[in-house]
Design a protein around this nucleic acid. Sequence first.
DNA 1: CCAAGAAAGGTGTATGTACACTGTTTATGA
DNA 2: TCATAAACAGTGTACATACACCTTTCTTGG
Lengths: 144, 144
Amino acid sequence: MKKELSHIPKECVAYNFTKTARHLASFYRKIINRSGLQGMQFQLLLAIRLYEPVSISVLAKKLEIDRTTLSRNLKRLEKNALVNFENAEDQRIHNVQLSESGNKILTSALPLWEEAQNLILDRFGTDNWHQLLDSMNKLERIIS
Amino acid sequence: MKKELSHIPKECVAYNFTKTARHLASFYRKIINRSGLQGMQFQLLLAIRLYEPVSISVLAKKLEIDRTTLSRNLKRLEKNALVNFENAEDQRIHNVQLSESGNKILTSALPLWEEAQNLILDRFGTDNWHQLLDSMNKLERIIS
DNA sequence: CCAAGAAAGGTGTATGTACACTGTTTATGA
DNA sequence: TCATAAACAGTGTACATACACCTTTCTTGG
């Protein structure tokens, strides 16, 4: 007889998070795309505005994403003239900052993020979200 | 004066889920890789075992992933001889099922999934996880 | 001072994701 | 019946992820 395995996808922490994350990213992306930005581009421009001028490695740590992934994503932003790189005194460090148009398009996208966020929170409840977020953060601490 | 924006990454539902999902996927992947399987390969083989023989579209709906993404991921499994395709009477449908070696390697990976899952649940608490999962499922229903 | 190592970043390669579009096969209703 | 629509799947293209490996630049301890 074959072992019953249907509990695995139902219970697997990674699978369920990945699935929900995909759907949520899609939800936000469809709205934020109206600004001309991809979802990831929005995240990056926002993070750059918060920390600029900032090196690639530092930004990767802030966003908790792989440095080489970030590096390539930033390269696309540079190609679209949304960010600029410049060297620091330390010649190893490539500092990134928003360009004029990067700043402009980010500003235009902020209300779209609000719209997506509010669509979710109005239906899910802000308190429920904060509780969920707390729980997720505990989970994160466990695996790092 | 510049508007304060640091609440956005802290609060954004999509960003926080994506980040946690990445970390969790990495956690499971490192363990499951010891079987020779990628994390996604494990998911797919498992789902195929649960539903085989199953068409690509049906499998995509079960897994809630994009059909074309699934199609290409399955192509890699086929290339590695872990699954087989065969046509149904309905010539449009390509049914997929596990090969001998696909079955074997999946069986060998199951204890590794248990290991990863238990590492998380032992530290996080099964009840906490079920509560979190409930909340996530509510969130999913809201956005679909 | 300077050799060894650490830090920053890039490249090669492979996998994963998803939208727009296409072709083929089956179902359906006027 | 047969034109039209729906269902199934593949391809083109672009973006996103991440590991292994490399070079360049700085730091540090003997």
